[in-house]
Design a protein around this nucleic acid. Structure first.
Length: 423
RNA sequence: GUGAGCGUAGCCUAGCGGUUAAGGCGCCAGGUUGUGGCCCUGGAGAUCGAGGGUUCGAAUCCCUUCGCUCACCCCA
C-alpha cells in the first residue's frame, strides 16, 4: 500500500484544528456543561477513544449506518479489531459494568464533555468526521422521574448557554413487548402504498421501518401524516411511563411537544426518545438527542439494567452560538510584555519574565532582534496593557520603565518592586 | 456512497484568451539617534490547486485528477 503524497500537508477531511481564537467558545460550552451537570449531581467520566469493535457493533446495532459504514475500524498490532468510538453511550455502559458501578447507589449519574467521536461520513455544515459531544447518562433506574430529570437537564443546558428558538421534541417508541406490533403496523401500512414511496423509503421499509417516519422527501409527507402512530400501539406500561414523564416535565416547566414522527437512529432506544432542534435553516437541525436504553447493558453482557441519556453536538452548539451572536466571555490575555534593548538587557529580561510568571503575572518576552519600536508595536497590536522596557540606561540605574499602554504614560520603577507595582 | 457549486499570496477579492497577475487586510522595515495604536513611504509573499490538451499565445477555453463547501443518506 503506497502512502499518498501530498504537496501541501493538511488536516484530514472532516477533521479541523481549533485555534486559540476559537477556544473561548469551547471553554464557554464546557463550563456551562460542568455547571449544569454538577448542579444535577452528575459526576464526570472520560473513556478511551478506542474500544473493542464489538462494543459498538453489539451496543449501537449491527445494521445501523454508524456501524455498517461510518466506523473507523483498525486492526492493531496484536491482531485485534478495535474502533474509534462513534458515540459515547455504549462506552459509558461498558465502564459501568467494568467497574461494578451497580454496587453504588442507583441510578449512577454520569456526564462527559468534549470527548471526541469519529464517524466516517461526508462532512457538511454541522457535521465532521471528528466531532465532540456532551454526554449525559443515568444508569440503573427505570422510573420516569429519571427520564424527566435527564430531559430537563438537557433543556437546562441549552438555556444556560443562552440559545434561543429551540424546541424539544418528545416521543415514545415502546419496548420489546409492544414495539414489534407497531413496526408491523407501519410495515403493512407502507406496503400498501409501495408505489408512492421514494427510493430511500423503499429500502427503509425493508431495513428499518421506523425510519420511514422521518423521511424528508416532500412526496412522502402525506404518507407520514397518515401513518400509524406509536402512541396507539404502546403497551400499558409504556403508556403509563410516558404519561408520567410528560406530567413530570410539566411540573418542571420544561416545554416540549409530542412528535409522533420522532424515532432515533440507534437500535438501543426503548420507550422515551427526545431531540432538541433549532428552527434554523439547514438540515442539521438536531443539536442533541437521546432517550432510554433499557436493553443496552444486558446486550453488553451485564444484568438487565435500565438507563437514560443524551448526547449534544458541541460543534453544532457553537455554530448556533455564533449565528445568534452569543459571544463567550473574553479571556484576560497577557498582562505584561517585556521589551528590551541590548545583550545584557536581553538576559535580564529573560529572568524578569520568568519571575513575573512565577509570581502569577502573565508575561511574555519581546521578540529577539527587533527594534524597540517594533516591540512596542507588537505589544500594542496584541493588546497587552503593560510593557516593561529594559535597556542599558535602566540597567545602570537598577530600574525598569513601566509603560501603561492604554494611558500612554510611563515611569521608572525599581527592578525589585516591579512585580508588586504591576500586580 | 450520490448530487451540485467552488478552487488566484496567511485571509478577502479583481482579472475571464494577449506583454513583468492587480488591490485591500495582515506581516516586515523605514519616516534621524531606545517608544506602539492614526497617517505616509517602501518591502517580502502567488509555479493563478495539480496534470494533460486546444491555441501563435491560457489564471482565463476543454478534459482528467485532487481538495474545499453545501445538500442527500445518516446523525451530534
Amino acid at each position: 500500500m503506497a502512502i499518498k503524497e501530498r504537496k501541501t500537508l493538511q488536516a484530514l477531511r472532516g477533521m479541523v484544528d481549533i485555534l486559540p481564537e476559537e477556544q473561548g467558545y469551547w471553554r464557554y460550552v464546557r463550563e456551562a456543561t460542568v455547571s449544569v451537570c454538577e448542579g444535577y449531581g452528575y459526576g464526570q467520566i472520560d473513556t478511551p477513544i478506542l474500544e473493542d469493535y464489538s462494543l459498538f457493533s453489539r451496543g449501537v446495532g449491527e445494521v445501523t449506518d454508524i456501524v455498517e459504514k461510518e466506523m473507523y475500524t483498525i486492526t492493531d498490532k496484536g491482531g485485534d479489531t478495535i474502533a474509534l468510538r462513534p458515540e459515547a453511550t455504549a462506552a459509558v455502559c461498558r465502564a459501568y459494568l467494568e467497574h461494578g458501578l451497580h454496587n453504588k447507589p442507583q441510578p449512577v449519574r454520569l456526564y462527559s464533555v468534549g470527548m471526541p467521536m469519529f464517524r466516517y461520513a461526508r462532512p457538511q455544515a454541522g457535521r465532521l468526521r471528528q466531532f465532540h459531544q456532551i454526554n449525559v447518562e443515568a444508569i440503573g433506574d427505570a422510573d420516569a422521574t429519571i427520564d424527566a430529570e435527564v430531559v430537563a437537564l438537557c433543556w437546562q443546558l441549552f438555556r444556560k448557554l443562552g440559545l434561543k428558538g429551540l424546541s424539544l421534541q418528545l416521543n415514545s417508541i415502546g419496548d420489546p413487548k409492544c414495539r414489534p406490533g407497531y413496526v408491523e403496523a407501519l410495515r403493512s401500512y407502507y406496503s400498501q402504498q409501495e408505489g408512492r414511496l421514494c427510493r430511500e423509503c423503499k429500502s427503509r421499509l425493508e431495513r428499518n421501518p421506523l425510519r420511514l417516519l422521518d423521511c424528508k422527501v416532500p412526496g412522502c409527507q402525506p404518507l407520514i401524516e397518515g401513518a400509524p402512530r406509536s402512541a396507539d400501539y404502546l403497551c400499558e406500561e409504556c403508556q403509563a411511563h410516558f404519561q408520567a414523564l410528560t406530567r413530570y416535565l410539566g411540573l418542571m416547566e420544561v416545554p416540549f411537544t409530542r412528535e409522533h414522527r420522532l424515532v432515533r437512529g440507534l437500535d438501543y432506544y426503548t420507550r422515551t426518545v427526545f431531540e432538541v432542534q433549532t428552527s434554523e435553516e439547514g438540515q442539521q437541525n438536531a443539536l442533541g438527542g437521546g432517550g432510554r436504553y433499557d436493553g443496552l447493558i444486558e446486550e453488553l453482557g451485564g444484568r438487565p439494567t435500565p438507563g437514560v441519556g443524551f448526547a449534544v453536538g458541541m460543534e453544532r452548539v457553537i455554530l448556533n452560538l455564533k449565528r445568534q451572536g452569543i459571544e463567550p466571555p473574553a479571556s484576560p490575555g497577557t498582562r505584561v510584555f517585556v521589551a528590551y534593548v541590548g545583550q545584557e538587557a536581553k538576559a535580564q529580561a529573560v529572568g524578569l519574565v520568568s519571575r513575573l510568571v512565577r509570581s502569577g503575572v502573565s508575561a511574555m518576552l519581546g521578540p529577539a532582534g527587533k527594534s524597540l519600536k517594533a516591540q512596542l508595536r507588537q505589544a500594542g497590536s496584541m493588546g497587552v496593557p503593560y510593557v516593561l522596557i529594559l535597556g542599558d540606561q535602566e540597567l545602570e540605574k537598577g530600574v525598569v520603565v513601566l509603560r501603561d499602554m492604554t494611558r500612554r504614560e510611563q515611569r521608572e520603577v525599581g527592578l525589585e518592586e516591579v512585580i508588586e507595582q504591576i500586580r
